[in-house]
Nucleic acid binder design. Structure first.
Length: 466
RNA sequence: GGUGCCAUCGCCAAGUGGUAAGGCCGCAGCCUGCAAAGCUGCUAUCCCCAGUUCAAAUCUGGGUGGCACCUCCA
């Protein structure tokens, strides 16, 4: 397969360090608030990547961290008079529940910063020993960017002189304005951690490097992980700094391939905390089925910026509906998984840097071909078998079509309403039996008023939520 | 200001040298008591200009217009 490597800014053949095995590390959430659509996008993109890697026969070790040490967490804990664990457990739990609704599989490893402090201390010490880090008078430990000749090679940034000057004034303890904190000393009574460097908190960038060393890397490997992923905004400074720490504090570079997913905008506007237009996942999930959101957020290439709006979401649902309608036509049939050309083509499309558009086009064409044949008289045993295999493959590889089709089409409808619709359909069936079409059509209008579609089939009348 | 990305049908969106995938919407038809669903058919020469080439949406140069990062952020 080929992947776009954002460090080399080109698409290239993916070759893991150890044949048949892939290590994947993705920057996960800082659990101080509810997850928004951007978190969902990132989790979905790398969920898809891990599925595609597995489908190619790789044994994947997927790690996504939980950042549970952070100033924002600490501030919130102080504000609400809670422990940081109370705060982080709450949002971690919410994150897991919401991701599950999106069909995002749990990574193999989910390291937490609080459980990786030893690895962080070890890395800081190594960097101090190597003279890649230094202590300041007030007890902070900084990474010395001037000691790393490869610094900024990942993000391809050029240090700006005027920028340098501005920042020198604001942080006089640093040798170089680009230097970043590995350990921040804290003198007051707020929440701190005891380290060999005194009381304080680890720097933001440190945990990823430390966790990767602890959980994924082999000392003799050239790269700590095969693939490192995260949101596009993390390229600088977060990933640049991570890469520097690992390069200077260990015997290897951080990642062989870097992957960054594009941003989610809302109605053309950047979504951000400061603009106050964050679309929280929990709110979206109240209105939309998690699988519809999954389909929608994955329907555009992972590197593009994504413009979230309800109109496109509705279009995405219609496209997902097509999978479910075909599923419905084959409902209750069993099958043995078998390989088909379609499956091969689908995987080939995804192997091209996760070309989701080509994949969805293949799926739509497969659906149309199947419907076309099913519309003609005959039993079509072979086609049905193949189609069921194809649908199962789509479910496994992309996570689309995971539910019972009747559930899918009745998302968000109360049991009470369902009963009312059922009663109206029964009345209408009776009217139809005696060919009282005026009454039948009037009843249909009543049913449609519930915001559903009604469809008459040889097996009875069915409804779908629009 | 620095760095980088993008510009394809009404909308969403693939395609990186050989003559424009797919979805939504729309129109016509088949099917249907009528619908819905499904199926069939129809709908773009790729922001502008110049260049390279037998051949360019796809390469080069110049415009124009969007956007992102450079500060915590997926």
């Amino acid at each position: 397969m080929t992947l776009y490597d954002s460090a080399k800014k080109t698409k290239r053949e993916f070759i893991p360090q150890v044949e048949g095995k892939v290590s994947l590390y993705v920057c996960g959430p800082t659990v101080y608030d509810d997850a928004h659509l951007g978190h969902a996008k990132s989790a979905l993109v790398f969920d898809l990547l891990s599925r595609v890697l597995s489908a190619n026969g790789y044994e994947v070790t997927y790690a996504r961290n939980i950042t549970d040490i952070d100033d924002k967490i600490i501030n919130k804990a102080v504000e609400q008079n809670k422990t940081i664990k109370e705060i982080t457990d709450f949002y971690t739990d919410a994150y897991h529940k919401e991701m599950a609704l999106l069909g995002v599989k749990r990574p193999d490893i989910e390291p937490k910063a609080t459980e990786s402090l030893d690895a962080m201390y070890a890395l800081i010490q190594k960097l101090l020993d190597n003279k890649h880090a230094y202590k300041t008078d007030d007890g902070d430990v900084y990474f010395d960017t001037s000691s790393d000749s490869d610094y900024l090679t990942l993000s391809k940034r050029v240090q700006d002189e005027s920028e340098k000057l501005q920042r020198v004034e604001s942080s006089s303890h640093k040798k170089n304005p680009a230097d970043f904190a590995l350990w921040k000393s804290v003198k007051d009574d707020s929440i701190t951690f005891d380290s060999p460097f005194g009381k304080g908190r680890p720097g933001w960038h440190l945990e990823c490097s430390a966790m990767i060393e602890k959980h994924l890397s082999k000392p003799e490997a050239k790269f700590a992980v095969d693939i490192h992923g995260g949101g596009a905004d993390l390229l600088f400074p977060h990933h640049e700094n991570e890469a520097a720490q690992t390069r200077c504090g260990t015997n290897h570079a951080l990642a062989a391939y870097w992957m960054h997913n594009g941003f989610v905008n809302i109605d053309g506007q950047k979504m951000s905390k400061s603009l106050g237009n964050s679309f929280f996942l929990k709110d979206a999930l109240k209105i939309y089925d998690g699988e519809v959101l999954r389909f929608y957020l994955l329907s555009t290439h992972y590197r593009s910026n994504f413009n979230f709006n309800e109109e496109d979401l509705a279009t995405a649902k219609k496209r997902l509906d097509k999978i479910y309608r075909l599923k419905k036509r084959l409902f209750d049939m069993t099958h043995e998984d078998e390989k088909t050309d379609f499956q091969e083509e689908l995987l080939a499309a995804l192997n091209d840097d996760l070309n989701i558009s080509a994949s969805l086009a293949l799926i739509d064409e497969m659906i149309t071909r199947a419907n076309e044949t099913l519309d003609t008289p005959g039993k079509h045993k072979e086609l049905k078998r193949e189609t069921l295999s194809n649908l199962a493959y789509i479910k496994k590889l992309l996570g689309f079509g995971v539910k019972n089709p009747y559930e899918h089409f009745q998302f968000g409808v109360d049991e009470e309403i369902k009963e009312e619709i059922k009663a109206l359909i029964q009345k209408r069936d009776e009217a139809k039996k005696v060919k009282d079409f005026a009454a039948s059509d009037a009843l249909r209008d009543e049913i449609l008023a519930y915001g559903v579609n009604l469809m008459d089939t040889p097996h009875g009348s069915f409804w779908e939520k629009i």
